[in-house]
Simulated scan of single mutants.
Amino acid sequence: MEPRVSMLGLGVHDLKKSVEFYEQGLGFSLASSSNENIAFFNLSNLVLSLYPWDKLAEDASVPAEGTGFRGVTIAHNVRSKEEVSEILKLAESAGGNIVKPAQDVFWGGHSGYFADIDGHLWEVAWNPKAILDQAGGMLFD
């Protein structure tokens, strides 16, 4: 297996509202192959897909019910400490919920968390030990 992740699929309760959150609120570009049943956003070296929550659970053969922490967060790393607060404000103005305000963290960086309209947790982080390339790809030395 090659060490990579190609697509991140999120189950959503209202596809139209979720597309609006990511496209209009956060500025992600909706791929033309999207339709009324699924949405694709091309990110740096990764595709974010949105699919109806119950249909995604059905596809995975698991129950659709579930609440609370899911054991997964999505990280958006930025190039400066100041960008953390800017992105959190953008997410909040788009309808997201700030779960943890921007703050210095124990590992030497600066981060905060927001939840999208379906409760998916996004960490926005500046990490002085990480290297971000021109396209936003991240590496650790």
Rank of each mutant, 00 (worst) to 15 (best):
S18V: 08
H13S: 07
Q103S: 15
F114H: 04
R70Q: 08
V12E: 10
S80E: 11
V62I: 15
L26K: 04
I38T: 06
D116P: 01
N35A: 08
E2G: 09
Y22H: 02
A125W: 01
L8V: 10
N127K: 10
L30G: 13
V78H: 01
E58C: 12
A60Q: 06
L46C: 04
L8P: 00
S33V: 15
E82W: 02
G96R: 14
L132N: 10
L48G: 04
G112P: 07
F69H: 06
E92M: 04
Y51G: 01
Y51T: 07
V72I: 07
G109A: 09
A135M: 14
A75G: 14
D118E: 07
G112N: 13
K81N: 12
A64F: 08
E86G: 05
S49D: 09
A60S: 03
V84A: 08
D133Y: 03
P3N: 10
H76C: 14
A57L: 01
L8H: 00
G27V: 12
Y51V: 02
P52L: 07
L48Q: 06
P63K: 02
S93K: 15
A91R: 02
L15Y: 14
H13T: 07
N97M: 15
L50T: 02
L139G: 14
I87M: 12
W107H: 00
W122N: 00
A135V: 13
I38L: 12
F114S: 05
L121C: 03
L30H: 10
F114T: 04
S44N: 12
K16Y: 07
S80G: 06
H13R: 14
A75M: 09
S18M: 04
E36Y: 11
V62W: 02
S29K: 15
S93P: 06
L15K: 13
G25Y: 08
L56C: 05
D54M: 02
L50F: 12
W126F: 13
K55H: 01
F69Q: 05
D54N: 05
I74W: 05
D54C: 01
E20A: 12
R4A: 06
L15M: 08
A102T: 12
I131M: 14
D14C: 02
L46W: 00
S93R: 15
V62Y: 04
L30M: 11
T73M: 06
H120Q: 06
E2A: 14
G136T: 04
N127I: 04
K55N: 09
N45A: 12
V47L: 03
N127Q: 09
